[in-house]
Each structure stands twice: as structure tokens, then as C-alpha cells.
Design a protein around this nucleic acid. Sequence first.
DNA 1: ATCAAGTCTGAAACTTGTTCTACATTAGCG
DNA 2: CGCTAATGTAGAACAAGTTTCAGACTTGAT
Lengths: 217, 217
Amino acid sequence: MDDPEAEAAVPERLPTAPPLTERQRERRRRILHATAQLACRGGFEAVQMREVAESSQVALGTLYRYFPSKVHLLVATMHDQLERLHGTLRKSPPDGETAGERVAQTLMRAFGALQREPRLAEAMARALTFADRSVSPEVDQVSRQTTAIILDAIGGLEDATAARLSAVRVIEHTWLSTLITWLAGRASLAQVRADIETVCRLIDLTEAEPGRAAAPV
Amino acid sequence: MDDPEAEAAVPERLPTAPPLTERQRERRRRILHATAQLACRGGFEAVQMREVAESSQVALGTLYRYFPSKVHLLVATMHDQLERLHGTLRKSPPDGETAGERVAQTLMRAFGALQREPRLAEAMARALTFADRSVSPEVDQVSRQTTAIILDAIGGLEDATAARLSAVRVIEHTWLSTLITWLAGRASLAQVRADIETVCRLIDLTEAEPGRAAAPV
DNA sequence: ATCAAGTCTGAAACTTGTTCTACATTAGCG
DNA sequence: CGCTAATGTAGAACAAGTTTCAGACTTGAT
């Protein structure tokens, strides 16, 4: 019936971006701000739709018009925060020797940033992994953002090989998982660091697209 | 306050296993069976506590005495299913050349098994990553099981080095994440396979512990 | 067999995500 | 301007996870 294996093709209605008026963009901003604030105080469960609506001075129905579910709301919040983070990261590029080291460095920096508001991070990360098919487009967006951050750290503007893209995906998975594991108190910071460094070695095992200099083992 | 960084120490009350009577074990079995059955039909959302209670002929309050939340229930179900799976896998060990190949082979086999009941897999996997601190002991149990499966595939009975353990954790994260991503329709089977194979290379980059071939403790 | 403690049951209540309804406001347009 | 469709509002209603409670049933020890 609706098994997976519908081969990942989910355009949905992201492309349909009806231009928002000023007041609407303002409302949206207020909502995301209220969400982040509530999340900072008490994580996922403190983000209650009625509270968000009240804090952002918007009716519950309106909140649902902007974000069709709590998960959508939190994934959008993650998108928002990641954008900020990506900007920050750009300003001080990693200085590792190999691409793998640079990626590890960048991810640990990102990790540090999220650590500063652990409850917000928890809310966003849990929403992200709890998301079902109906949130796929939005989750994909976040995923593309993460990919962009990693590719930035690798540095080369070249197209990556399939092997390298696979490595990037694996790194992404690992990054999110370790984050969640740490947030749930099931892993120490040392383990997180070790795992990030471990997985980032995969980058140095893959060649960049021909014509570029890369450092194999 | 209760930030993470309480340095991952979660004994909780798993050690306190009050011996169950026969009828109790029977009830528990019925509950897990009903859960799996409902999950097979409609995934996470079809597992409704009232339904589970009714299907397993147990009062709602009793269900909650056995499993303090829906997430606990589904994580326990995963534990149950993994036990079964581990048994199956043991019977036909992987035949790859390198440890990494064997691990990849085993994980793809496990993946195949879960694919057969995608909705059940979805329910269990989502519960697992959605779990918060209150479920840490149970999630850890599942994690240990997965680790055991991977170590089995590696084959050596030797203690693994820290580097290798880190690799195993990374593989675990990747395995779960790809599963979820596939279940949500955001990745193709080919990508799953590529990512599993990619991450399993990490195993062949790490040496097994020198000399000793016995279990300490 | 009996009693106390612990378990189970059925049903209602409570919480929070989500939906719906009836009405007010706004924005774009002829 | 004045209309109309879309958007926003307040609040009730609904759904499913979780809690609570009074009373019946088991169990284990005496």
C-alpha cells in the first residue's frame, strides 16, 4: 500500500510559495521566535501549541495555518537556527590539514553552538527524527542545509563523487545521532568527539572529483 | 539544571527486576504481541494504548504498569524483535572477507528483515529516536543488543580497541538513521546500501586489540 | 483458611495536539 | 469606494496519551 519504496520523490507543496505580505512575515517571525524561546526553557514538551500561539499573539488556527503540526513548527525552527549557524560558521573557516579534519572541526563547532541551548537543540533534534512522511520536504531542506555546511568545510567547490556523497550522508546521520544521544544523556562529550572524528575519516578515504588535490590516508 | 553532561550514568531501575509470576509473564507477552500486530498494520500511530490494552485483554492501568509510556512499550517491542533477529542472524554467519564486509552484510540482512514489516519497523525506530531521558535504560539495552550483533559479525572475540568501539557506535547510528530515512521515503534502497557499505569501511581501518583473545571481567 | 499487600479492572478525568465553526478583518481589484 | 476571497480570531470540540480512583482479585505468609 504505502510502503516505503515509493522511491523518494517528494516535491509536495514547497515549490508553491505564495508571496507573504509584510505582516505575515512578521507573524511567522514572531511564531518562530516564541517557539525557540519556549524550547530553550523546557525543550520539546514545553513547546505547546497553545503557548506558542499566545506568546506570538496569534490565534491557534493561524498557527496551524503557518505550520501544520508541532513537528513542522520545530523543523522550521531548526531550519531557521541552522541558517544562522551556517552564517556564523562561514566567518571562521576550519583550519585542519585534511578535509576530514576540517569537517570534524566544523561539526564540533556546530555541536558546541547547539550545546549552548541544549533544550532547544533537544526539541529540534527530536522533532527532526520523529518526523514522518508528511514532513519530508521540510526535513529534506534541513538535510540539504547540513550537507551544505559539510561541503563548505571540505572546501573544494568540485562536485563530489558518489562515494564522497555517501560519506557525507553518513556523517550527517552520525552527527544528528550523536547529538541526540548526548542530549539524552546516553553518551559523554568525549564519545561524541571520538565518533565525529572517527566518521570524518571517511572523507579522506574518498577522492574528490578528478583534477583536484585530495589527501588519501 | 538538568542539562545533559550529567556524564551518562544511568543505572535506574532496570537492575531491580522483581521476579514475575507466570500469569504476569503471559500478560507481558500478550501485550508485546498485540503491540507488534497493531504496529504491523498501521505503524506508530496505529499503536494506541487503549487498543493495545483491549487487544491484549488487559486494563489500561495494567498496561501502564507494565510499560510506563507508549515509547517504553515500543522500545521494549524492539528489544523483543531484535532478540529474535539476533538469533536468526547467528544461524547463518556472514561470509565476507574482511570484518567490514561481514558487518555490512549482516546489517543489510537485518535491514531486509525489518523491511518485511516496514510499519512495525517504523513504529519501533521512531520510538527509539524519540525516546527521552526517562527511557534511557531501555534504549541502552537495545543499543547493547545492536552492538552485540555487530561485534558478532566482526567475529573476533577479542576486546575491541577504543577506536573500534567508536567505529561500532558510528555504524550503529548510521544503521538506525538510514533505516528511518528509508522508512520515511527520503532515501532509496541503493542509498541505504551505499551508506551501510561506506560506514562499514571504518571497521577495516581499525585494528583489533593485539595478542589477547579472551574476555576479561 | 485468613489476612495484608500487592495487582488488576473499569471507568472517568485530565492534558495537549489537532480540527472545526462562526464571525471579524484585510488585501487585492474592478 | 465597495465587493469578494483569503486570512485571522476566539473558542468549542475531538482524539489519544496519561493519570487517578474505588473496588475486586491474587498471592504469599502465617
